[in-house]
């Protein structure tokens, strides 16, 4: 049993959990409005958008690839969503079209990276610009208003279960649970670790490395798409600048969560903690009336510090 406890403490997730608890305790003591149901549920609602994207990116990074175009995609899916809703009055059709766009982007990113073999940072950096540029061209740098004004559209991003838990948080939790289970228990999840850890090993063991990575790209884009749909609902329109910088927030959470950019290492539970830590950090610092500039500086130091410490700990072993 002592052995198990020691093994647990060696794990990155345990350290993150500790950091998270300390963070909550610190803000709870320093700011009286922090530990209120309203505030906590608000933060969870905001965090869930990053959470959904981080699950997708986490999977992809574990498979040894990266996608920095997700911020642009988050902004882009709102366009078919709102346009289709405006024309048909159907939320379902809008969502289907938004997810189709995400699917197409995922397929293209995945095809170019996994099958053609272009470095995924370059491919998706390219898509980041292409998609954002296309958004600006299509919208003429203006937001597209939601004229259908469907109550259901408003509810998916802003509604709360029993008046407390935001729907996006529930969506994020369900997605997180499904994918944690997949990564641990499905052969596909285990393949992702193998492919990211060492593609040659995975291929020699009889797995199709390219296809596995391709699927990871598609999943990552679809999850970013879901995140974009919820964001659009919160904004009540398709905003041409929405999702700007989203990719950095998500990459930060993923690496803070202990996922190695080299692939093969990390867990979605860690990723979830990474998202929560960054979200509560920004909320708590805001409550301390710290200027956003300083919040950014502190966040930056925390990311470097946490990942650096983890690296040192790994090396010592």
């Amino acid at each position: 049993m002592g052995d198990r406890l020691r093994a647990l403490l060696k794990r990155n997730e345990a350290v993150l959990l500790l950091v998270f608890v300390l963070l909550i305790a610190f803000f709870a003591l320093t700011s009286e409005n922090f530990l209120t149901t309203r505030n906590i549920t608000n933060v969870l609602g905001q965090a869930s958008l990053a959470m959904i994207g981080a699950v997708g990116l986490g999977i992809l990074v574990i498979s040894g690839e990266i996608d920095v175009s997700i911020g642009s995609l988050v902004g882009a899916v709102a366009i078919p969503l709102v346009v289709v809703m405006n024309q048909t009055g159907s939320l379902e059709l809008g969502i289907i079209c938004a997810l189709l766009l995400a699917l197409v982007v995922g397929v293209i990113n995945g095809y170019l990276s996994a099958y053609v073999g272009i470095n995924s940072l370059i491919v998706t950096l390219g898509s980041l610009f292409v998609i954002r540029g296309a958004i600006y061209i299509y919208t003429g740098q203006k937001a597209i208003a939601d004229r259908a004004a469907l109550e259901s559209f408003y509810q998916i991003g802003n509604g709360r279960l029993l008046g407390t838990i935001p729907y996006p948080a529930i969506v994020a939790l369900v997605i997180l649970a499904i994918f944690i289970y997949m990564m641990r228990q499905r052969p596909f999840g285990r393949q992702l670790y193998a492919v990211g850890g060492n593609p040659e090993v995975a291929r020699l063991a009889g797995y199709n490395v390219k296809r596995t990575k391709f699927i990871a790209f598609v999943l990552c884009s679809l999850l970013a798409g879901i995140s974009g749909i919820l964001l659009s609902s919160r904004l009540g329109s398709a905003v041409h600048v929405s999702g700007l910088g989203y990719e950095f927030q998500v990459v930060a959470a993923v690496v803070l969560g202990g996922v190695s950019l080299a692939g093969g290492i990390g867990s979605l539970f860690g990723v979830a903690l990474g998202v929560l830590i960054l979200s509560f950090l920004s909320n708590g610092l805001g409550m301390l009336k710290l200027a956003t500039e300083w919040q950014q500086v502190i966040t930056g130091f925390i990311i470097i510090g946490a990942v650096g410490l983890d690296e040192l700990r790994r090396r010592r072993r």
Partner: peptide
């Protein structure tokens, strides 16, 4: 080292890598 082992992963996952499907029922390991 470069084509056989997943160095960071446990003995368990290294050994079962090629036969995950045979331990799966209903798609779950």
């Amino acid at each position: 080292k470069s084509e056989g082992l997943m160095l960071e992963l446990p003995v368990l996952h290294n050994m079962s890598l090629a036969s995950l499907s045979s331990f799966s029922s209903g798609g779950f390991v």
